[in-house]
Design a protein around this nucleic acid. Sequence first.
DNA 1: CTGAAAGCGCTTACAG
DNA 2: CTGAAAGCGCTTACAG
Lengths: 358, 358
Amino acid sequence: MKTFTFEPTCRTGKGNGTVVTIKDVAREAGVSVATVSRALNGAASVTAQTRRHVAGVAARLRYVPHGAARSLVTRRTNTVGALLPDLFGEFFSELIRGIDLAARARGLQLLVSSSHGDAAEAAAALRAMQGRVDGLLIMSPHVDARFLKEHLASALPTVLMNSSVADKDYASLNVDNYGGAQAMTRHLLAQGYRDFAFITGPSDNFDAAERLKGFRESIVASARAFLLQGDFSEESGYRAGRQLAAMQQRPQAVFAANDMMAIGCLFALTEAGLRVPGDIALAGFDDIPIARYINPPLTTVRVRIADLGHGALEHLVARMETMDPPPQRHTLACEVVPRASTDDASDARLPASTPHRP
Amino acid sequence: MKTFTFEPTCRTGKGNGTVVTIKDVAREAGVSVATVSRALNGAASVTAQTRRHVAGVAARLRYVPHGAARSLVTRRTNTVGALLPDLFGEFFSELIRGIDLAARARGLQLLVSSSHGDAAEAAAALRAMQGRVDGLLIMSPHVDARFLKEHLASALPTVLMNSSVADKDYASLNVDNYGGAQAMTRHLLAQGYRDFAFITGPSDNFDAAERLKGFRESIVASARAFLLQGDFSEESGYRAGRQLAAMQQRPQAVFAANDMMAIGCLFALTEAGLRVPGDIALAGFDDIPIARYINPPLTTVRVRIADLGHGALEHLVARMETMDPPPQRHTLACEVVPRASTDDASDARLPASTPHRP
DNA sequence: CTGAAAGCGCTTACAG
DNA sequence: CTGAAAGCGCTTACAG
């Protein structure tokens, strides 16, 4: 209530929208700013009575601490950054969700940044985040060990997600793309398929390379395989499917390096009058939600994407708490989900694929 | 190179990971911190030569400005916050993508927060963001005008997305749910359907209420309609579909308040041996990607979700630049996307739905 | 248990 | 064109 006549900005004014600071609260409450700080931050040394009083005044004034000021002195932002290549589609949706849930549980805010078309953009994004976060989660095809040494402050805790960086200085959490592709290949072999086509992902993509490697190294001597170049897009899968349909000697089974390509391929095959899996079996990788809904439902490798985000954040928190132990590289297992696209007899077929009158 | 023997923390040390500050750059460059600040921020008053020199030293030292310190003095964080109810699914994925793209283009960072199960959680999230962002994008079922007056600093620029808040004090951007439902209803009427079922969304959801209203107020006198309660989940759509299948007098067409319920409904209908649209037509709302891929492809109302995010951010930026004009309420149009689920003869059918041998 | 004071790393009038 | 100094809003030893 003590309003000074000539005070330029009405600091304690409850009328307009001027920012309320800790000083205003201290003045109103009749205590020092130190006491306000302690009371509001739950320091043990404050009387319960004082705490209540200060809290009441702060609430009445709608006081919100200035984050930057606090960060400046505490050296903590309570924020983690997530540097992602894109935000489009289910994959990133799930990834962010996993990260967000874990961050929330830890009381951390989440700063996101995406759409880095090239290394320069990624570097700019990295720069913009540094000095604003306590830790960093990075997923980017443009990022290698050299890039990180160049652009990342070594003091900033960081965890790489699905990264090809194998440098001892960086912690990471990767999906076991190799193991997943291997498991799928063995599954197909176990079903009796011996003649394969593999639709690859982009040649510069680490996930894609690992999946290809897992496939390649699991093919037994008695089987044959050839590659079709793709780029993870539905479009490229469609093109591959057209090629397959045009062949006179078609493979028995197609393994696409991701679900979107498998779906594109499926359209091309069906369009050409081929039945899946009757004429040709088809498998994907990722288990995106659509995989269950298409006709026939798609056999694929399930990647628990939200778990990747969650796990990476937990890993990051561990590093933020103590940078002492050397960075660790972790791997997240995936599993084969058998559905109708590789097996006519599968129970996994959805009712939608076998309509009949009652 | 001027290293002082007893300096406790090796500030200019390029060896370890201690934080480099503007002082270190100033000392190394042999200028004042003011000059470093000006040079790095592109002030016009600095010599090109000085600027180059300072920039070189800063780069060599891997200097990154401390965001909090800068924010404290500039009163800007260059960050906007997005308060969302959830991050699950295509809708939020697209929304965040739209926001992120627009924010990037404006050089703004994006702080996200989600998963507010109730008003208390939303309030906590709101609090945590204030004092850390220059503006706020809010989408939350728990937020009404009273909540905002209570928890939101009036000085913080804010834009509500898809909000029922009609208070003159708040800016907003809403999808035209009413108009979309109206357009779909008229489309179905134009196709000759006269007997409808409408599967509603959650009763406390604003989007759901607007869609229902749009449907209700567009039904002509010669048509009949009844409601089935849903909650936007696929599961609830499935239940509605079971109910429909069990009726002896089925409606000619079902309009679900969102695509996920339409998909659940489709499964139940197909499972019961009913053909869509032969026995019963089906329409949804949202045009999520799956809508195109199911069999038959789903007639729906397209909501340009990324545009909602993009538009809301642009609206917010406008308010951040000048709070002078009174808050405005904008609306984003949507459009009917006719597909096979309401029309056997539609060209929109995917090849996948008409397989045949060559 | 509380207060006065220093200081976090910046930017920006104010002089020169 | 550049520097010295004040100050942004907090927290935290340091005294009492």
